[in-house]
Design a protein around this nucleic acid. Structure first.
Lengths: 197, 197, 197, 197
DNA sequence: CATGAATGAGAATTCATTCAT
DNA sequence: AATGAATGAATTCTCATTCAT
């Protein structure tokens, strides 16, 4: 009888928001941002077209939110609050964290990678703080390779990055045709750790 | 002025076709297939919208042609006419061929990779002979790793693929921000060759 | 705390109604009926969208009420209960009443004029008693001009109406940029009175 | 067989543009900008919805063009290239020009006035050169009244403006119910001339 | 072979209105 | 009496495609 409280409304909004963003991530990844219509998105999320606009200003704003969310997750993995020097243990921890996340949230990451590889989306990334994070991380890695006596630190950075990102691409291309066996993932993870510690 | 001969007409048509496809590759890569309009494409290619339809039945047909062209180039690299057994020298030749092509036609490959990574396009690949080629090549590689005594051939396949594809992704993400130094590319190429021969 | 009495409820309702109508008049005038959304209207009136529908059946009904209110005010000015013959004193009284109302409720009248000039609204006026009032008043004026020996009573009616309405338009166009000095208004008022008595 | 020449295309575009703008003026006036849909506009102009967007970037841009056109016509009437001083003959000429234009293009002017009185449109006028013209003209009139010995030039400016604009409003309110007899218009025109020369 | 005006189906977006709480 | 999430019809706008010239 009495109207919902502010708190109740906030809870509703929060849930709905996530629900829409989840659907959007999936559809943007499977159909591509440009080929995915708001209509289909709404019906997949089991809401009306209009409601989407109650939560996001536009299709593009929805994309922004989805990206933002994923970038935050990535930044979480890269772990920002460092003193700028990477120890061997930290590198191991970092690699384990990445692969552990890939394993436990495989579908999420594949979808997200698929989304951010789209040209329209790449453009958006330019102004994001993620760029800063990545650069910071890269120089930490270079420093690490130098200190560990690797002959050509920059080559190692390329190699390291290529292996991680290449693995992502493999997953992405395999999906949704077949799944990588968990055991194989672990071996690959260990291979990288062995190479660099 | 005598009328153009049949041969001349054919030459014009051929040139125009290539000109359109080149523009399409660039725009599909930079803006994404879904965000690229025929209008912009035509004006970029310096022809009229109508003329495009004189050369390609539809936007999708144009995409098909662009993909087809690129896949043929890739299949050329993978080298189809094999007896099914890969020698060490052949692998080296193969790797050198890939990297050489990347170096000499860097922009082309980046654009092409960007195009075929788009979800809409991935779908198209399902029915293409390229899939067959890739599978054939994969089993050749597995065979090779087995014969060369690698402990876990499948892991090596993943590693090998990840390195190559990951390198492509690095290039793609760097483009058009900065260019990889040629020297670094060569080192990476040698690193892969060293690992697997 | 005892529950509110019926009377109190009615008072609240009445106040709220006026509050909504005032906001509506302002927004309909400033943004135009068609460009003014219920959402903005509600937030301007500091109530919820839903509540608006508790007081008015629809946006159009709200417009109706706003118009009705203004028309009543105008009819009040024109003074309906007449024997059909206008004396010189009555005309003076009438003109003074109009200008006095304009001066004391300048903003209100400007907003109202702005609203009823909108095409959508003009249509509504067709069926209103106001038309009847205006016609009645016009023939009274014609009669008056005839009796006072004006050469072309119809021309005078046009002239008289044009001056009054034209003044309204000037106000409307000036608003909200600058205000007419009160003194000037008085002079203009006297000019009309001088012309016609 | 051969494609149309540039000139032919330009001619087509010019004609169509005018045709669309004419329809727009009528509909914006009769239904109001906000209540007039592109669909109805297109079908009234006997073109497809899409074509409108080939000629105007948006509904708002179309409105802009319509306004621009009308303002140019008005500025034509006000006659810009003056030395800043108004002679009695010039004033007569000016008044005659205005009324002559009203008589010969009555419907056009009514529609245009109806359009620019809409709140949404009033806003647009702020940045237009017309404002400058009107101000220039006003000061010329003030100067004129002063020189001719009118007691209160500013009052006369108000009176003069009110008569002209008020007449426009009368026309606008009468339309499309009944038409003013031409004879009456002439008398009113002469009345203004008599008053001020 | 070449052009760009024209079409129309369909996509994004808006907003009056309803309704559970 | 009061709230704002939810709806969906209507609206603006886009763009692949056609076609007269």
């Amino acid at each position: 009888m009495s109207p919902r409280t502010r708190k109740q409304f906030d809870a509703i909004r929060h849930t709905r928001r996530l629900q829409i963003m989840e659907t959007a991530l999936k559809l943007f990844a499977l159909e591509g941002y440009g080929n995915c219509t708001i209509s289909r998105l709404a019906s997949q999320a089991a809401i009306s077209k209009g409601l989407m606009y109650n939560y996001f200003d536009s299709k593009e704003a929805l994309l922004e939110s989805v990206i933002e969310q994923g970038l935050n997750d990535i930044m979480e993995l890269i772990d920002p609050d460092h003193d700028g020097v990477l120890t061997s243990d930290e590198l191991v921890g970092f690699i384990r964290k990445i692969f552990s996340s890939i394993r436990s949230r495989q579908e999420y990451w594949i979808l997200f990678i698929t989304v951010i590889m789209q040209p329209k989306v790449k453009t958006h990334l330019k102004d994001k703080p993620i760029i800063h994070y990545v650069e910071q991380f890269s120089s930490m890695m270079l420093e690490y390779f130098k200190k560990r006596g690797f002959e050509d630190p920059y080559l190692e950075l390329v190699n390291f990055s290529a292996m991680i990102e290449g693995f992502g691409v493999l997953l992405m291309y395999a999906y949704p045709i077949f799944e990588f066996p968990e055991e194989m993932m672990l071996k690959f993870e260990n291979r990288i750790i062995d190479m660099y510690t």
